[in-house]
Design a protein around this nucleic acid. Sequence first.
DNA 1: TTGAAAGCGCTAACAC
DNA 2: GTGTTAGCGCTTTCAA
Lengths: 340, 340
Amino acid sequence: VTIRDVAREAGVGVGTASRALADSGNVSKESRARVLEAADRLGFRPSFAARAFATGRTHTIGALVPFFNRHYHLAILQGVQAGASADGNALIIYNVENAEQAGKNLRFLASTRRVDALIVVALSTDLVRKVFPHELPFPVVGVDRATPEGVSIEVNHAQGIHLAVSHLCGLSHERIAFIDRFQDPISRQTGNDRMLGYKKALAEAGLPSMESYARLADYSEDGGNQMARELLALPDAPTAIACASDIQAIGAMRAVRERGLSVGDDIAVTGYHDVELARYVGLTTVKLAALEMGQAAAEVAIAMVEGLEPQVPALPAPELVVRESSGATIKAGRGVPHRE
Amino acid sequence: VTIRDVAREAGVGVGTASRALADSGNVSKESRARVLEAADRLGFRPSFAARAFATGRTHTIGALVPFFNRHYHLAILQGVQAGASADGNALIIYNVENAEQAGKNLRFLASTRRVDALIVVALSTDLVRKVFPHELPFPVVGVDRATPEGVSIEVNHAQGIHLAVSHLCGLSHERIAFIDRFQDPISRQTGNDRMLGYKKALAEAGLPSMESYARLADYSEDGGNQMARELLALPDAPTAIACASDIQAIGAMRAVRERGLSVGDDIAVTGYHDVELARYVGLTTVKLAALEMGQAAAEVAIAMVEGLEPQVPALPAPELVVRESSGATIKAGRGVPHRE
DNA sequence: TTGAAAGCGCTAACAC
DNA sequence: GTGTTAGCGCTTTCAA
């Protein structure tokens, strides 16, 4: 049953039927009612494909995201989803686990105009550029990429880490280590903004910046665990360990406990991202505006599809979330996972 | 640049160009090469919309899922994603937070033929049926719904809970409570299979089934916490608490600690689902084949789109995952979150 | 093996 | 306000 059937049934032309169905004005109340009634009676279902074909818009936006199961990226995605669906757009998620897959997805996306816009989350700009020496046939907006080209939603990671380290300084720690994470070939190049935030916070507190305290580890629990072990085995072991991710921090907390020490009491630990997990394990961390970033990205992308000039909104700054692991709220019940 | 341009450039007809591009046979090697070369030179990108329009297939499958952030559903989704993309299909996720939203999404999906098939995760059959008194214009496959109609991938929750409770019986507990979860208007109607699994396990161990031990609570940390408090305040307090979800179990663990008791040592607690969190808090739980279920659903859906008879594959049975919270591995380092 | 031509179902421009 | 018509870009007959 097509729009033609509906038009015939309603005794109008297809044009009128189309206008009535799309609610695009220029239809008398009467015709409108008859068309709608006829459509309903016939069980008319407009074809998405035909509509997309005729209008050139798929009302779909794509998101290229690494590591489907990383909480932080999921939060961003949730924001993208919200922003997209608010405008009636569907979201297709392209999962990226490695460079090869990223290339495949990107090539596919570029080759068939399946989406109206693409949101690229946390992916290395180099990677994207390598796959697309030329222009993509739709707008692209980046999220959380340190060397952004074109339109991009960014977070100030230097500021974020600065927050955590300053917090530790404020708790009178003088030996503060930082476990950053390795750069991988897929993820965004972060430059060294996190490390800069760490050093800046130390400098502001009048603390020396020691080479042996600035570490790089895998972006994993084990990565954090290993590196924390090394740090704790140092003759001049740190009394506080800031981490570049919550997941590494959880590994570091384990290292502290495995040494027979108490997290928060003997050794302070901080994370980064404020993933859901952090709450349950009492981790002091830095909350990023992941949801808002995703939503902003979707909104900007949609605006670009409409041909508007992209206007990136201001986003909430990183925010310190104090829990037990930094030792600042020990009296509140250390060791007992509790809710905020 | 359309297929017509490509055909002209290659000196062939559009038919030949189409066949060459789609690799659908009946094209001479020579023509094929020329078409491909021309397409490449011109930077031809086939229009997804036009193709979908012409073939009637969108190569997209939809997934209707409640609560985007529930780990268990996410795992299912990851499976769906894998199954769908293996066959070159995209996945559109329709997030459902309440009955109203579910209805809206379903109506939208039904009204515009945007997807080739729909996968309905954990949603109440009643809800779906209420929105669709009639047939949907595409195949629908359910996942984890207790009163399945049509094609559906199911888990044996009675067996799953039975596993956990039997484990507790095996640890010589004699007062074992069970915190089930309320039925909500969106989620699947579970009948009472979980409760049945609990009672069956008790019966097998020769334990009486006490009314005051079988509880219903919110599907949340607080829900589990509240109910565990009540249970622990009982004159004949249980020594073990099985829960219908990991998240409730985490609340229950907190209740135990808040009473000054030790989880695993004084009071055993078990969860259900084995979400990622469970590992970090040392929760003994039951692992469900969420990923496999999702993947199977996608495969079945795709088969149905192709017109094949759906053949639901056998899935891994629920599996007990023993960690510290049940007291079975206390010596392994109680209280220290550790990895398996 | 090939080219021409007929749609797929809708929107939008146009004349009325 | 309305009906007619010309596409949108592809696939798939159908004859040749």
